[in-house]
Design a binder for these strands. Structure first.
Lengths: 336, 336
DNA sequence: CATGTGTGCTCAATCGATATAGCATGATTG
DNA sequence: CAATCATGCTATATCGATTGAGCACACATG
């Protein structure tokens, strides 16, 4: 096919990549024609079907693929949608990542997810980098400092949305943490005598605050007085929970309300080690298939990832008020 | 500061982004000088510290951020490293994603991970898209058709590496699936009378084949004859495992060797439902913190993600022979 | 005072793709 | 037969950042 034996695609490993100019030379036509054919605008640009076919053929033969860097630069449209993610180590965030990618791709967007391990500076740097790549939307999931990201994005003209943890500077989609927590605490108080012990999370973070509020509400309904010591917001990490329980002392409560699956890892490890015969029951926020099968876990609160992402993409289409906050109901999964 | 009141960054929401030309005009200098200052080459390019400071100040004030699309196009160096990931729904892949990002960033690379749900066409499309974004390396994790991706990458002059599942067309980093599997089966056969039942995975996939080989080897060592019916490679999905077990009939074996945590979900669900009092013991490939706490799970094989990624990045530096295959030992985690 | 050296910048081409404007043809119409 | 129109293309400017070449000036040296 090709005259020049040096230009065979198979042998060209580290050589220059094929461009529309190479294809134009091979087809004996112009770069504009090649571009029009390859990006699908050729009908509109009145390129003959004959030439289009020839170019398409050559492109396939040469293993051509667009330089999106050049394309995006020229079009001033990247179709990139970024997501900032705290961790990949639990099913909740894993499901968010997966569903996010599916939906983004279904809309012809290129999803870019990055994991920032709850580090505010890394979160911000990641957002900055996505903006530099001309991302058109940024979804900040569980961001420690969502408003810093949202303000930066707004200044750069990039739409941003908060997910999981709300912010004031961009629209937010969050679970009904209050309701979910209250329902879980109610269920546990129906089974065992309170007060329960709340463990895990950061007292400064909105979700933890809301869940504590729901936890308190369920106790208040039953007229149970809740001492300050019943709330152990020791952070999310498993080791922090183990240390907090060890430091706590005193008898175990009838029920443990655990604020996340990561915290639950530490709690269960500690229980198995220090009180293997305890009859304490456990309820936890977020759902995990194996945790749900543990004998002492009586219920888990699943966040409705599908509905949350439906809302996220609705907001992406709508460009709504930054103060908007959408609360999605949770699903209580009790042991049968 | 600014003469023109219309160019205040706060009010410029959807307006054009600030470019080096805007900054040059504001600073009364040239775009080249601005570029040199902002990308750190200004000392080499003999720009005065005074001007550098002025430009830096202006850039911060205007909320400037580079257009990496333009920068990459000109530099012909993207610093993008892509990873293709089958799923985000288990700890193994989650840990790979997280460690990959940490290492990539430590090297000044921009990590882009995408999840392709074990769909060969999606895997390929994702690779193609990353190549279009001028990614410099692509790590194909657990790819269904790694050679198709590797061939494509090679033709485009992009280095690729296989992780978790090996291929012939690019260097591969995999676990010692044979050894891990044999050790797990040995441990189970030390506790209970064989033969065990192997369940989960795809018979065509390299890892499953190797694990079956290890499983057989452990039985052979003890002189246990293994019937064909002792291998149920029914796919990874949890539901497939449940269906396969239901269809199997006959008494339960003394031990179940489960080929992945996803399969394990189905196996445990089915056991709890149909044989809640069974004394069958379970061993599984991959580690999960909650699964490890289930009463009937006696051991799990953890893949050494840290060492695997060490090897991946060593290969990225070394550009080795495509036929190279590195096997990383696994870690057997038995119930204490 | 011619020559050399160092400093501090600017100019202009370039990366690859896209899109606007326009130029040849040939066919159609009044 | 001139004017109009449709068809099928090409030429060229452009997106924003980078970079090799080079210019202007100051100062030193023989």
């Amino acid at each position: 096919m090709t005259e020049d034996p040096m230009s065979e695609p198979a042998s060209r490993t580290s050589a220059r990549r094929t461009t529309i100019y190479d294809l134009a030379a091979l087809a004996g036509t112009s770069a504009s024609a090649v571009s029009a054919v390859l990006n699908g605008t050729w009908k509109k640009r009145r390129i003959s079907a004959r030439l289009a076919e020839k170019i398409l053929h050559l492109a396939a033969e040469q293993g051509y693929s667009v330089n999106l860097q050049a394309s995006v630069l020229r079009r001033e449209k990247s179709n990139i949608i970024g997501m900032i993610m705290p961790k990949y180590d639990n099913r909740y965030f894993g499901a968010i990542a997966e569903e996010f990618e599916i939906r983004a791709r279904a809309r012809g967007l290129f999803p870019v997810i990055t994991c920032t391990r709850r580090d505010p500076d890394l979160e911000f740097e990641a957002a900055r980098e996505m903006v530099s790549y001309q991302a058109e939307h940024i979804v900040a999931t569980g961001a420690t400092d969502p408003d810093r990201i949202a303000d930066f994005c707004r200044a750069a003209g990039v739409a941003s949305i908060n997910l999981d943890l709300p912010g004031a500077a961009a629209p937010s989609v969050v679970s009904d943490n209050f309701g979910g927590s209250r329902d879980l605490a109610r269920l546990m108080l129906n089974r065992r005598r309170g007060p329960l012990l709340f463990i895990g999370g950061r007292p400064t973070d909105h979700n933890t605050a809301e869940r504590i509020r729901g936890f308190r509400a369920a106790h208040a309904e039953r007229g149970i007085d809740l001492p300050e010591s019943a709330i152990l917001a020791c952070g999310y990490a498993a080791e922090k929970a183990e240390r907090a329980l060890a430091a706590r002392g005193g008898p175990l409560p009838a029920g443990l309300f655990v604020n996340s699956t990561i915290t639950l890892e530490g709690v269960v490890r500690w229980l198995r080690r220090t009180a293997p015969d305890s009859t304490t029951e456990i309820g936890a926020f977020d759902w995990d298939p194996f945790a749900a099968l543990l004998s002492d876990v009586v219920a888990m609160v699943e966040q409705d990832v599908t509905r949350m992402l439906d809302e996220v993409f609705r907001l992406i289409d709508a460009a709504p008020d930054p103060a908007l906050r959408i609360e999605v109901p949770t699903i209580l999964r009790a042991r049968p």
